[in-house]
Design a protein around this nucleic acid. Sequence first.
DNA 1: TCAATTATTTCAGTATTTTAAACAATAATA
DNA 2: TATTATTGTTTAAAATACTGAAATAATTGA
Lengths: 169, 169
Amino acid sequence: MTVIAEEKPTTGESTPQTLITQYLSTLSYIERLHRLLLDVVKDEFERVRILDITSVQALLLFNIGDKEVTVGELKSRGYYQGSNVSYNLKKLVESGYIKSERCSVDRRTVRLKLTDEGCKIHQIVSDLWQRHVDTIDDNDLMSLGDFERLGQSMHTLERYWTDNIRYIY
Amino acid sequence: MTVIAEEKPTTGESTPQTLITQYLSTLSYIERLHRLLLDVVKDEFERVRILDITSVQALLLFNIGDKEVTVGELKSRGYYQGSNVSYNLKKLVESGYIKSERCSVDRRTVRLKLTDEGCKIHQIVSDLWQRHVDTIDDNDLMSLGDFERLGQSMHTLERYWTDNIRYIY
DNA sequence: TCAATTATTTCAGTATTTTAAACAATAATA
DNA sequence: TATTATTGTTTAAAATACTGAAATAATTGA
């Protein structure tokens, strides 16, 4: 009796696709995509000759948009990932992209809003993403369903990782 | 005659799922997952009381593994995303995690290898990922197919973004 | 009123990026 | 073969960015 091996499905060729190889590949993608995302934004601002802003700051301005938020919300809403918001905030206020004023109700909090210049930055980023989506759509690179599945998987990873970090901080 | 509106499909409730909302959501995930990935690694090394290494450095050591690479390859193979490899490299050599020696064939290049201590770091990270995969598998969080689709989507994004950065650098 | 909590800032130390220059080995060309 | 260009890497200084802890200040709740 001949046992038919099931272990090595011929997925085209190359390395066998296992959970671990796929997982490691995913981790690499996350690193590269993150870097690339910043590069794409940086590149766009060089293109339009705005040089007094970093990718991180531009994305922060984009995230704020037309909303009025407090410093704390920048972190809690995930608009800013770093540990010390004040640092980049100070720069953005100095460069005239954000205006801030103490809240009259709770005088501990500071309310932040984009200036007109800040809105311009927001618009540049917004247009960039819209162009991307248009191209992706026109060329059938990814469908809505693809994005939904992508979102689901990333959500799963996010939750798993969050749960696995010890609560020592 | 009553026109039945088709614009707002009731996807459960919440915001309508369009390409642009999905795209923006994807960008946010990439930022958060990247940060979380570094946190997960950092957390693990705090857990095992190794404090002289950063997440970025640990991932670099993990990427090198048992391979022998040159400095340039660290960048070209995507093992290190930062701009100045020498900087972190110097640290890792100083901390005794990497040993380097001139290549005898092309004497310009330097061949890098993990020391025994470096291999320990590699193993810690390797074990961490294996535990993750085991949990993900045991709890049916994601299937091989999920990972394959995830990889495909991320690959599409990577290529699109790479192509869209001007070749000015 | 006092302690606890929350929101934000400041600061010192550390890390990273950038830029430019230097250097040494190799490859290409005349 | 001499020369030039290219490649791989290092160094060093300055500019910029980030981190964690402590400080400040307003608010809340007992």
